[in-house]
């Protein structure tokens, strides 16, 4: 049994969560029991996911971010972490409903598409490098949840605009609540990303080398999210536009990550 088995097992529980969600949507009532089961499935998935990262970290001898596969698994883990933290505290019903499919998609894409080589002796080791990478990954987790709340916003807003309400309309949160959580996630992610970038600057001085495309990508992501965060105050950027932008930004960030990692390994 390899550490990947645990990641596969985690996917089973995320998939269970997706199925439970569909049942709740169909049933059309709030389904308190199903909601608790859903949260439990996500929590078990998260625990297995953590076991994977722990075993991989031990094998790597460092924070498991040595290749694209590991970073994808880590981003998905961070997304579930944020869901488990903010889901109950903000009482956002159905947040898990939209989180589970995204996490499942990221992990399955990584598990199936990516070549996963355990790097026993990574070229560079430094606490700053690890800090820089880990906090940037946590930021991605917050951005993943901003993607999720953005999707929920668009789902609700579309129904309000078209004046046609589905059976799940009354179960999902209000658009104002989604907008508020969305902006908070963006701010939190942006602060962490900024810290990660500063950590990267320090680690550049220590390690002394860097890949140009990766820097260009990182700075673009930072500017993109910076504009989103400042946009609310400066240009009254909110609601639908922010929802669309936070979804697009996350997709661009992930696509850029894959592109940079695969083209300039």
């Amino acid at each position: 049994m390899t550490d990947r088995t645990f990641l596969w097992l985690a996917q089973v529980f995320y998939a269970v969560s997706c199925v439970l969600t569909l049942r709740r949507m169909r049933a059309g009532n709030s389904g308190a029991t199903l909601q608790r089961l859903n949260y439990a499935a996500m929590a078990v998935g998260f625990a297995l996911h953590t076991v994977f990262l722990y075993l991989r970290g031990k094998a790597d001898g460092r924070c498991p971010l040595t290749n694209l596969f590991e970073t994808q698994a880590f981003i998905a883990w961070a997304a579930v972490l944020f869901f488990l933290l903010i889901g109950p505290s903000y009482r956002v019903s159905f947040l898990g409903a939209f989180t589970a499919p995204l996490v499942l998609l990221i992990c399955l894409a990584a598990l199936i598409l990516l070549v996963d080589v355990v790097q026993a002796h990574p070229a560079t080791r430094s606490a700053w490098v690890e800090f820089h990478a880990a906090i940037a990954i946590l930021a991605s987790g917050a951005f993943a949840l901003a993607f999720v709340t953005g999707a929920m916003y668009l789902h609700q807003e579309r129904q309000l605009k078209r004046r046609r309400l589905s059976s799940s309309f009354l179960l999902l949160p209000s658009i104002e609540q989604l907008d508020t959580i969305n902006i908070r996630l963006l701010i939190l992610g942006f602060v962490m990303l900024t810290a990660g970038m500063l950590g990267g600057l320090v680690s550049y001085h220590i390690v002394g080398h860097w890949t140009k495309p990766k820097i260009i990508w990182a700075v673009s992501v930072w500017i993109l999210y910076g504009a989103l965060v400042l946009g609310r105050g400066l240009w009254a950027l909110r609601g639908r536009k922010v929802a669309v932008a936070s979804m697009a930004s996350f997709v661009l960030m992930l696509a850029g990550f894959w592109g940079v990692s695969l083209l300039w390994p």
């Binding site: 049933a27 059309g28 009532n29 609700q156 309000l160 059976s167 309309f169 009354l170 999902l172 949160p173 209000s174 658009i175 104002e176 609540q177």
Partner: peptide, 25 residues
């Protein structure tokens, strides 16, 4: 609790209230 027999508002006033709730929380 196990059917949707009480779900959804059935008068103009309460439908408006539901909508307001889903816009503003």
């Amino acid at each position: 609790s196990s059917t949707a027999i009480t779900r959804g508002s059935t008068s103009v006033g309460t439908v408006a209230v539901d909508l307001a709730g889903k816009i503003f929380g």
